[in-house]
């Protein structure tokens, strides 16, 4: 089955980013097709060179490096959210496909479950 995860929170101050990624990794580990959509402040999870040690926090950007291992290939980022924050598409820590709202809507229609974190 295809599970879509909308990741909408910035890393570190709350647990949403971490717990959203953990749920996505679990779904992939249980053999489900997983797609990730970073949007809103969630796009900040994608910035390279995060120093989670500054906050003694779990480094969620390292979890992103594990996506390959879990066979999560469908990683998308909302183009409008990047533009609103002045972040270039090629400045991200992992390879992801920039999409607009219309594309996200179309792709979500094929998901059996949409999880929002």
């Amino acid at each position: 089955m295809h599970f879509a995860f909308l990741l909408r929170h910035p890393p570190y101050s709350k647990q949403h980013a971490r717990e959203g990624l953990e749920a996505a990794l679990a779904a992939a580990a249980f053999g489900q097709e997983v797609s990730l959509y970073f949007m809103g402040d969630g796009v900040l999870q994608l910035l390279p060179d995060q120093k989670a040690t500054q906050l003694a926090a779990k480094d969620t950007s390292r979890m992103l490096q594990a996506l390959d291992m879990y066979d999560i290939e469908n990683v998308y980022v909302d183009r409008t959210s990047l533009q609103a924050r002045g972040i270039a598409e090629d400045a991200l820590a992992i390879k992801c496909t920039a999409v607009d709202s219309r594309q996200i809507r179309q792709q979500l229609a094929t998901a059996q479950q949409v999880f929002c974190f």
């Binding site: 909308l6 909408r8 949007m39 709202s101 996200i104 809507r105 979500l108 229609a109």
Partner: peptide, 23 residues
Amino acid sequence: MLHIINKATPDASLEQCLALIDP
């Protein structure tokens, strides 16, 4: 699609939901 919103405006959820809605 049923969109369920539990947050008061202004909140990013509302904007993000509106952007994805098929009216």
